[in-house]
């Protein structure tokens, strides 16, 4: 998998949304934390105690350089080293689509964290749909890769993720959709390029 690889190409609207959702001083685990930009943002704006997980050497080095706590590891091996309920929030920012064991990692997020926060590029965005209609795999700011070199193995639409949550006893607490850094409230699955979810496990 790739860790937060799309980060630099996206505006910081999702970061601000996440920062609004995380209470000051919270403990946060950021899966696929890239160079640690989000964790640094959360530390500076919300005084969170954060740790990132990242697999790529150069991004681990970038985190350490940023003074961000980073644990080198592969998300596809799960979060076995982390105790249940040991974090206030577990974040998966622009990484969901690049994880192989998608189902497992989302459930692991809700085992380790009291809340999960996920952001992902919306495959249902109209520009993506147009490109598919035109007979090609979409390439855009949010999906900058060609089909043959993409780390993204599990792309989904907002509708897909809603269904996923319903099927897995996950309660969506908040959902924000953005396009080019602006909120999209009308027809989000068509007009939105980036989705941000906050969710928790439904009591069984």
């Amino acid at each position: 998998m790739s860790g937060g690889g799309l980060g630099p190409r996206i505006g910081r609207a999702d970061f601000d949304a996440i920062a609004d959702w995380v209470r000051p001083g919270a403990t946060v685990l950021d899966l696929g934390c890239g160079d640690g930009t989000l964790l640094r943002h959360l530390r500076e704006t919300r005084s969170v105690r954060g740790y990132g997980i990242e697999i790529e050497d150069d991004k681990v080095i970038a985190c350490v350089k940023n003074g961000v706590n980073v644990i080198q590891g592969d998300l596809d091996r799960g979060l076995a080293g982390f105790d249940s309920g040991s974090f206030d929030a577990v974040i998966l920012s622009l990484t969901l689509q690049a994880v192989r064991q998608t189902e497992d990692i989302v459930l692991e997020m809700l085992r380790v964290g009291r809340e999960g926060i996920v952001t992902f590029p919306n495959f249902g965005y109209w520009r993506h749909r147009l490109q598919v209609l035109a007979g090609r795999m979409p390439v855009s700011g949010e999906l900058p890769y060609s089909w043959y070199d993409t780390p993204n193995v599990h792309l989904c639409t907002i509708q897909d993720f809603d269904d996923f949550c319903a099927d897995h006893s996950i309660r969506v607490l908040e959902r924000l959709v953005f396009c080019a850094g602006r909120r999209v409230d009308v027809l989000p699955n068509l007009r939105g390029s980036l989705a941000v979810y906050r969710f928790e496990r439904t009591a069984a």
Binding site: T27, I61, V64, V68, N69, V70, I71, F82, S86
Partner: peptide, 21 residues
């Protein structure tokens, strides 16, 4: 090393962990 890292995280200490291939 991961056992040590876990103990440090349990204490909310600042820690980074590199697993060099």
């Amino acid at each position: 090393s991961r056992e040590v890292v876990k103990a440090l995280i349990d204490n909310r200490l600042d820690v980074s962990y590199a697993e060099i291939d």
